[in-house]
């Protein structure tokens, strides 16, 4: 008999992301399920990227949080399917990103049938500067300090910033 436990889920939901500490794992949308059985708690999470180096830290932090809340034994499983999307980041998560100076992702484009189109020109989507709000920003690099961010610069206030890229 498997029952959802609000207590265990809450303990997991409050754990923060190791690379984006302004977000909880709940905000990030990586928690697939938390189930409490007679013999412990099983947590299922999904990595944001295949090689996400933070996944091991997430597992350790979840285990610690549940143990601190009195739960055990704890099993943390990783599943890849369905693949994580930035669309799973909560509204409060998007606000927290912006407050921390990271431009939140736009909506991921739904995948059309057929071959994936090549993007030779920078995408026309507007990314607003999280500092001054100007829409006049440019991409410096597709790949930022973490797997999930790109580097941009505001041409109005000249501040560089990170943008969580749509995936």
């Amino acid at each position: 008999m498997v029952t959802l436990s609000l207590g265990a889920r809450d303990a997991v939901a409050r754990v923060v992301d190791p690379e984006m500490p302004m977000l909880t794992l709940d905000d990030l949308g990586v928690i697939r399920s938390v189930s409490e059985q007679d013999d412990g708690v099983t947590v299922t999470i999904t990595p944001t990227y295949s090689g996400c180096p933070a996944i091991e830290e997430m597992r350790a932090d979840i285990t610690r949080a549940l143990a601190d809340a009195g739960y055990g034994p704890i099993e943390v499983r990783t599943v890849f399917s369905p693949a994580w999307s930035t669309d799973w980041i909560s509204e409060s998560g998007r606000r927290k990103l912006a407050d921390a100076g990271v431009a939140p992702p736009g909506r991921a484009t739904p995948r059309a049938a057929g071959p994936i189109p090549l993007t030779l020109d920078p995408p026309a989507t507007v990314v607003r500067c999280p500092q001054c709000g100007s829409p006049a920003t440019e991409e410096l690099s597709r790949f930022g300090p973490t797997a999930c961010t790109a580097l941009r610069r505001c041409t109005a206030c000249r501040e560089p910033f990170e943008h969580m890229k749509e995936i």
Binding site: S50, S81, A83, T119, R142, F143, I167
Partner: peptide, 17 residues
Amino acid sequence: AAVAAKGVKEVTYHRDH
């Protein structure tokens, strides 16, 4: 199938780059 679904999103960025 799961590796592919995840990988498609990543490699799209690699190819554009």
